[in-house]
Design a protein around this nucleic acid. Structure first.
Lengths: 249, 249
DNA sequence: CGATGTGAAACGTTTCACAGCG
DNA sequence: CGCTGTGAAACGTTTCACATCG
């Protein structure tokens, strides 16, 4: 397609190069659904089925799968087991990714105990905090160590992914330590924009921002309903915008 | 621009209509940074400054702000206080949004206690679970009620945003209850794709997917370094691809 | 002059429509 | 015939470059 970059390149390299970011995110979703389908005993899925179950347009799904050098069978669909295997390979789930979690507060605790990680190929290999009450204890069998140990411990245990769940003020400092330790992919839960070198990939999960986006849509919907009905009505925004009887606080 | 929809529309309606999704997400980020700047006593910011602090291209920032009917001063920048006010109005933060949280497990506990919500205009108005050990207790002063109460309680308290932090198997059922209760914006932490009517807005926070995206990038980077360096170096991937001495599990 | 606001080009993503194969 | 795989069109987003104005 684009053109063969080099003649003798492994198929591993060939497939991985040019997958759009947006597709990668969906591949993970397909993979999860395929896991469920496999458990239910399904042997094949059509793009329509899988697309329906994952809330995606079938054409988009087929294009996504075509990026990984697809293994579909025309007239039939995709073989579930084979597709699972290809997706896992593409997403780098064939070699385990050791994860370090920094910040064992409310959220950190929850993340440390979250089944979705260890269960699905992301063993939490290290926990860090600065609180003396936390350093030294074990969570889910993992020792909480002091943040200053990050460079040593991460290097030792081959940590490839860091998760930051600290308060915002210290997140950048923690990030710098992780980068120093050679961690090049970071999942940031702290409400700050991290500054990192180009070679480091940061993804952000920002709960406050998510809520604000939804708040925007609440406002949009209120205006929409206020605008549809009233053309005749004068000022129909009445109870909609400010009609919250009595909130809990 | 697009065209004035109706002559005498309030400026509130005029500005809100056509803001791109991608911009809305960033507006929330600008708002947070502006809050910090205000606390530091800044009176104005230039697009370059604010863009730098939020990791965004300055032109993009200016375009984003132009959507809300911008209040910048040429040659100077933006007045911080005024911009904060405009952003809050645009994001629907002037009237509080009552939030309901369903699923008080690991993650739910953390969310219920998270300061970023109540502090910033999102009072948690209701908590729900099915576990008899949880129903009846208070968390952060809020009573945990049974999931079956969702329709009544949400309607009573004017809940506009629902958060689902349940196991995947029950998330769709919970979602249906929320929708039935009139909640039209949902933040979903459960690892499933929710099926909702068109008028309901769902945003998904999917930790496992985030990690898998990062895992993909780890794999990509390994291939990149394996491909760039070694032209001279032989096999430079040394400890990178399979150098994980001993993982924790 | 310096920073905003914005057409227009570049880029990425989604969707359509259908050729091609099992 | 049915479903995949994929050019090409449509759409949304980002970036550039510069006119505009305080």
């Amino acid at each position: 397609m684009t053109k063969p970059p080099q003649a003798g390149s492994e198929d591993a390299t060939a497939g991985l190069r040019a997958i759009p970011e947006a597709s990668v995110a969906r591949l993970a979703v397909y993979l999860r659904k395929l896991g469920e389908l496999a458990e239910e005993g399904a042997e094949t899925v059509s793009s329509d089925e899988l697309a329906g179950a994952t809330g995606v347009n079938p054409a988009k799904l087929r294009k996504d799968l075509s990026y990984i050098g697809s293994y579909g069978i025309r007239g039939v669909g995709y073989e579930v087991a084979a597709l699972v295997h290809q997706l896992e390979r593409t997403l780098g789930l064939n070699h385990r990714q050791a994860v370090a979690l920094v910040g064992i507060g409310n959220l950190g605790h929850a993340l440390a105990g979250y089944g979705g990680f260890g269960g699905r190929g992301f063993p939490v290999a290290a926990l860090f905090d600065v609180d003396p009450d936390l350093v030294g204890i074990h969570i889910n069998g993992i020792l909480v160590e002091h943040v200053r140990e990050i460079p040593r411990v991460c290097a030792d245990r081959g940590v490839t992914i860091g998760m930051i769940a600290t308060p915002g003020q210290v997140a950048q400092g923690v990030c710098d330590l992780l980068v120093e330790a050679g961690v090049r992919c970071i999942l940031n839960f702290a409400p700050v924009v991290l500054q990192v070198p180009d070679e480091v990939e940061v993804r952000k999960v920002d709960l406050a921002v998510e809520l604000q986006i939804l708040a925007f849509h609440v406002a949009r919907k209120n205006l929409a309903t206020a605008a549809t009905a009233p053309a005749v009505n004068g000022h129909a925004a009445r109870g909609v915008v400010n009609g919250s009887g009595g909130l809990a606080e």
